[in-house]
Computed example of a mutant assay.
Amino acid sequence: MRFISLVLLFFIFFSFTGPVTGQAKPGVSAHNAILIEQSTGRVLYEKNGNDMESIASITKVMTAILAIESGKMNEKAAASRKAIYTEGSSIYLEQGEKMLIEDLVYGLMLRSGNDAAIAISEHIGGSEEGFVHLMNEKARWLGMTNTNFDNPHGLDSDNHYSSAYDMALLMRYAMQDEEFRKVTGTTTYKSENRSYSWQNKNKLLTQLYESCTGGKTGYTKKTGRTLISSASKNGMDLIAVTLNAPDDWNDHISMYEWGFENYEMETIIEKGEFQYIPKGSDGTQTGFIHNDIFYPLQGNEITNVDKKAYLLKKKHDAPSDIIGKTVFYLNDIPISEVLIYSGQDNGKKQGFISEILSIYQKIIGLKNYG
Rank of each mutant, 00 (worst) to 15 (best):
Y85E: 07
L100K: 12
Y92K: 10
V105N: 05
K98F: 02
R81M: 14
K98C: 07
I91N: 00
L108N: 05
Q95A: 11
K82Q: 03
T86Q: 15
Y106L: 09
M109A: 04
V105S: 07
E97C: 04
Y85N: 08
E102A: 12
E75P: 02
K76D: 02
L93N: 07
I101E: 14
Y85V: 02
E94G: 02
S89D: 10
L110W: 05
M99A: 12
S112I: 00
R111G: 01
A83F: 13
A77W: 03
M99H: 07
L104Y: 03
E102N: 14
D103W: 13
E75K: 15
A77G: 07
K76M: 07
V105D: 13
E102I: 01
I91F: 01
S89M: 09
G96R: 10
Y92E: 07
Q95H: 05
K76L: 09
L108D: 06
Y106I: 07
S80I: 10
R81G: 05
Q95N: 12
R111N: 07
Y85T: 11
E97Y: 08
E87L: 08
M99C: 09
A78N: 05
E102L: 02
V105T: 15
G107I: 03
G88L: 14
Q95F: 01
L104C: 05
S80K: 03
G88W: 12
K98Y: 03
L104N: 06
S80E: 08
L104R: 09
G113D: 10
L100M: 12
A77I: 06
D103N: 13
K98N: 09
A78L: 05
V105H: 11
G88A: 14
S112E: 04
G96L: 06
G113H: 06
E97I: 04
V105E: 08
L110N: 13
K82F: 01
T86F: 01
A79G: 08
A83L: 13
T86A: 07
G113A: 14
I101A: 11
M99F: 06
E94A: 13
M99Q: 13
A77D: 14
L93D: 06
S89I: 08
I84K: 04
L104Q: 03
L93Y: 11
E102D: 13
I91M: 15
G107E: 00
R81T: 14
M109E: 05
D103A: 10
A77T: 11
S90V: 02
I101W: 12
R81S: 14
R81P: 00
A77Y: 05
S90D: 00
M109G: 02
E75T: 08
I84N: 01
D103K: 06
G88D: 14
L100Q: 03
L93H: 11
Y92C: 03
I101P: 08
L110H: 08
I101S: 15
A79N: 09
L104P: 04
